[in-house]
Simulated scan of single mutants.
Amino acid sequence: MAVKPASELVINWHLTEACNYTCRYCYSKWHADGAGKELIHNAASSATLLAEIYRHFAPTPRNHARLGMKWQSLRLSIAGGEPLLYDREIVRIATQAKAIGFNVSLITNGSRLTRPLMAELAPQLSVLGLSLDSALPAINREIGRADRHSLVLLQEELSEIVALGRKLNPDLRLKINTVVNALNFTEDMSPLIRQLSPDKWKVLRMLPTVTSDLSIADYEFAEFVDRHTLLGNIISAEDNSDMVESYIMIDPRGRFFQNSLSGGGYRYSAPILDVGGEAAFRQINWLAKKFISRYTAEASEYMA
């Protein structure tokens, strides 16, 4: 039986800004601020960061007391940009993280996920996340979910690659992330979701952290969610207020960062490798209760 998500504390490391898509509402844009290059390109620095993050967030009584909640395991969620633009680095980091003690997940747009790469990654992953905002090629192109040659994701091929991953790792869970915006809020994505049969479908309202382009009203987000209620309890809907200060996020240069509903970009900590995980984490706002509230099942069990 799949582990309930609330039993894990999830650390989201956005390894790169680079992406082969140009989504108009992309939030994966970070200020360099003289902080150096993306750590993904430095094997030694990446390994040191992984060790420090695990030390700071490992499920120990001391860490439970410091964060004000309990968790049973720690998951590193590898995200971007599009992380599979650097597939060799991703395989290395996923393998290192699992060896340290993390569960490992990967969030990708799927466009660079090949069968040979899936064969390497599937044994390392507990969760494969796919960012899919539309089943319609025209809508994907208008959003910006197409490469520089205007090619969009081939969904049939993706379905076959996902099936291969599940065959190689029967415990692999599939999660789909969909950003609901002004171009897709009237769409019925049920056929695509049923085809891929994810364990979880996270439906997120477009967050105007970097831009308000394609933002939607409350009732438009509600319409999208209501249209898909027949899919059952795999749906997890998150409005803008649910996302702020409820995620633990690290930017490509190894800084904790946090977003704001008021816009204006992100707030950053000092680089973790410079000041350590504990000091850096104190420099951003994160609310344990908001993290737990995203997981309604057994929520009270995980509060200290």
Score class of each variant (00 low, 15 high):
residue 6 A to D: 11
residue 49 L to P: 00
residue 222 A to R: 13
residue 21 Y to Q: 10
residue 17 E to Y: 04
residue 143 I to Y: 01
residue 190 S to C: 05
residue 5 P to Q: 14
residue 229 T to F: 00
residue 27 Y to T: 04
residue 12 N to W: 10
residue 89 E to Y: 10
residue 251 D to Q: 02
residue 140 N to I: 03
residue 253 R to I: 02
residue 118 M to G: 01
residue 221 F to M: 06
residue 295 Y to L: 03
residue 35 A to R: 13
residue 182 A to K: 11
residue 279 A to E: 15
residue 89 E to A: 13
residue 81 G to R: 00
residue 167 K to R: 08
residue 189 M to T: 10
residue 252 P to S: 06
residue 244 V to L: 07
residue 136 L to K: 06
residue 253 R to E: 08
residue 15 L to Q: 05
residue 214 L to E: 13
residue 179 V to E: 00
residue 57 F to H: 02
residue 145 R to T: 06
residue 279 A to Y: 09
residue 159 S to Y: 04
residue 294 R to H: 15
residue 127 V to S: 00
residue 162 V to K: 00
residue 80 G to T: 07
residue 302 Y to I: 03
residue 206 M to Y: 04
residue 302 Y to D: 00
residue 216 I to P: 01
residue 289 K to A: 12
residue 141 R to H: 09
residue 243 M to P: 00
residue 20 N to I: 11
residue 239 D to M: 07
residue 278 E to Y: 09
residue 156 E to M: 03
residue 148 R to M: 12
residue 139 I to C: 06
residue 280 A to G: 10
residue 226 D to A: 13
residue 270 A to P: 09
residue 106 L to M: 11
residue 175 K to P: 00
residue 68 G to S: 04
residue 246 S to D: 08
residue 159 S to A: 14
residue 247 Y to Q: 01
residue 91 V to T: 11
residue 20 N to R: 11
residue 288 A to N: 03
residue 254 G to T: 01
residue 140 N to P: 09
residue 127 V to D: 01
residue 173 R to D: 07
residue 166 R to H: 10
residue 135 A to C: 04
residue 55 R to H: 13
residue 98 K to A: 05
residue 222 A to W: 07
residue 301 E to V: 09
residue 274 D to S: 14
residue 183 L to Y: 11
residue 224 F to G: 00
residue 270 A to H: 15
residue 130 L to M: 08
residue 267 R to H: 14
residue 90 I to A: 01
residue 99 A to E: 14
residue 94 A to G: 08
residue 212 S to A: 13
residue 286 W to P: 08
residue 52 E to T: 12
residue 217 A to D: 11
residue 3 V to W: 04
residue 139 I to L: 04
residue 302 Y to K: 02
residue 232 G to L: 02
residue 185 F to W: 15
residue 99 A to V: 06
residue 201 W to A: 03
residue 295 Y to F: 15
residue 178 T to G: 05
residue 304 A to V: 08
residue 114 T to V: 04
residue 105 S to K: 03
residue 244 V to M: 05
residue 46 S to G: 13
residue 244 V to H: 03
residue 234 I to W: 00
residue 213 D to L: 13
residue 208 P to G: 04
residue 81 G to T: 10
residue 134 S to Q: 10
residue 11 I to P: 00
residue 46 S to A: 12
residue 167 K to Y: 07
residue 105 S to H: 01
residue 210 V to P: 02
residue 100 I to F: 05
residue 224 F to E: 03
residue 215 S to E: 15
residue 133 D to H: 12
residue 2 A to F: 09
residue 285 N to D: 13
residue 146 A to H: 13
residue 107 I to M: 09
residue 298 E to M: 07
residue 139 I to R: 05
residue 202 K to M: 12
residue 304 A to M: 06
residue 71 W to F: 10
residue 178 T to H: 03
residue 256 F to V: 06
residue 22 T to E: 13
residue 290 K to H: 13
residue 278 E to D: 12
residue 32 A to R: 15
residue 248 I to G: 00
residue 56 H to N: 06
residue 65 A to F: 08
residue 46 S to T: 15
residue 200 K to Y: 14
residue 54 Y to N: 01
residue 221 F to S: 03
residue 75 R to F: 06
residue 144 G to T: 05
residue 171 D to L: 03
residue 213 D to Y: 14
residue 259 N to P: 03
residue 154 L to R: 09
residue 122 A to S: 08
residue 242 D to W: 04
residue 151 L to K: 14
residue 215 S to M: 14
residue 115 R to F: 04
residue 292 I to K: 05
residue 67 L to H: 08
residue 52 E to S: 12
residue 106 L to Q: 02
residue 197 S to E: 12
residue 63 N to P: 04
residue 121 L to F: 08
residue 237 A to I: 05
residue 243 M to Y: 04
